[in-house]
Write a protein that binds this DNA or RNA. Structure first.
Lengths: 228, 228
DNA sequence: ACCTGAACACCGTTCAAGT
DNA sequence: ACCTGAACACCGTTCAAGT
């Protein structure tokens, strides 16, 4: 009852625990992902890292899916939106996508997260917005621009995903290149006749794809009926 | 000890349980996925459906990841490899991809499985082989063909994925279209100025993407340095 | 308003023990 | 050789109870 007793009881063994917040949860989740990859992204592990129980997180985050979306957008803040006035519209697009690729590539699990999570947030919006602006400069608008932006991001994400999962497992895991293993030449002549070409530089492949897509949508533009 | 007793004891309450096999496991897994989507694809659920324990499956299947690859290839057996001699090489490619798209679209969870599982097996090989053959007819060879085939399949898979997940949740979940919600026009002018165009027909979008990619890789062919 | 612990209903994988 | 049950080390989410 004495003041003395009380002050001893209320003394904390360590500085006051950081109060929870969406930001702290997202940052902790991201740190865990840096260390453990996508499997670090679990409610229970994040909670443990914050010295609390998993149920506490639900005050700030609706569920794991929503948390994943937050983590994705949080990481995308490091994607650099170019502002080189001398560059062509294509170069601008290549630059953002390259920055996006690098960001995904640097954090294990990030590419997988990007591939399976619908991005919601200001950073992903900024990237999309920039790509649409550049496409507009290249006279690509409307559905072509919208679908094209989608395709460009999808392509970049998937190249990053293949690249990182290859690194992880110490194995080659391109969609196409996996077919090459354990196949008989006689049964799949086309596949086996091009084994060499498959294993060429990854950055070359990345550039090639962006260029191919940009070429394709430039040629098509709007309204053109496909496959005639 | 008597013969009589023994025969009664050995009498089974139902016809002898089907012996396990890789095929039966894969087929059961696929059936479960048809009913429950991707969450039906668990060792424990498959085992229960086969009236055994999860550990029994490990005799025939190395782990869940391998089982997923088997299920994917099993489903891909229904993809029709075209043999229309009068069709152009592009039409042939469009046809396989359309069949592939339909197969993914019809089984819930299949598109997600295809997006996150490296396909190994004769059916996926047959599809790749056919696409490479058609690209060869269109004078697209070497790395262009390999990367192009990859890109075409990736694109098709992802359109199917977006389409099915949209259906599942009764929501629109195209990469691009999700940005449109809860965005202020003033902050992202490009995005908000094209809201209408985004929500157009999905089959049109599918065709557009294939054509764009084919155009792009046709123009590039081999050796061309991108972005000059 | 926020946090907690316990509970519920699940996971994949391993392993000793059985046939 | 194959199957089994139990165990291990996890999951996401909910909820009554506390402050």
């Amino acid at each position: 009852m004495s003041n003395h007793d009380k002050s001893i009881i209320s003394r904390r063994s360590r500085p006051a625990k950081d109060p929870l917040s969406k930001d702290i949860i997202v940052q902790t989740a991201f740190k865990l992902m840096m260390d453990e990859g996508i499997s670090g992204l679990s409610m229970r592990k994040i909670a443990k890292a914050l010295d609390t129980g998993a149920s506490s997180l639900y005050v700030y985050v609706k569920n794991l899916q929503e948390l994943r979306a937050y983590v994705l957008d949080y990481r995308l803040k490091d994607v650099k939106i170019p502002n080189n006035k001398n560059a062509s519209w294509k170069e601008g697009i290549f630059e953002v996508l390259h920055s996006y690729y690098t960001v995904l590539y640097q954090s294990p699990g990030m590419a997988e997260l990007a591939l399976t999570t619908v991005p919601v947030g200001s950073h992903s919006s900024a990237i999309i917005e920039y790509i649409l602006k550049q496409l507009d400069l290249g006279s690509i608008r409307s559905t072509s621009a919208a679908w094209g932006a989608d395709l460009l991001l999808l392509y970049t994400t998937s190249v990053a995903y293949e690249q990182t999962s290859r690194n992880q497992k110490g194995q080659d895991s391109t969609l196409i290149s996996t077919y090459l293993h354990s196949l008989e030449g006689s049964q799949y002549p086309m596949i086996s006749s091009m084994k060499k070409e498959i294993f060429s530089g990854e950055s070359e492949r990345f550039q090639w794809g962006i260029e191919a897509v940009l070429q394709g949508i430039s040629v098509l533009k709007d309204g053109k009926k496909p496959l005639n």
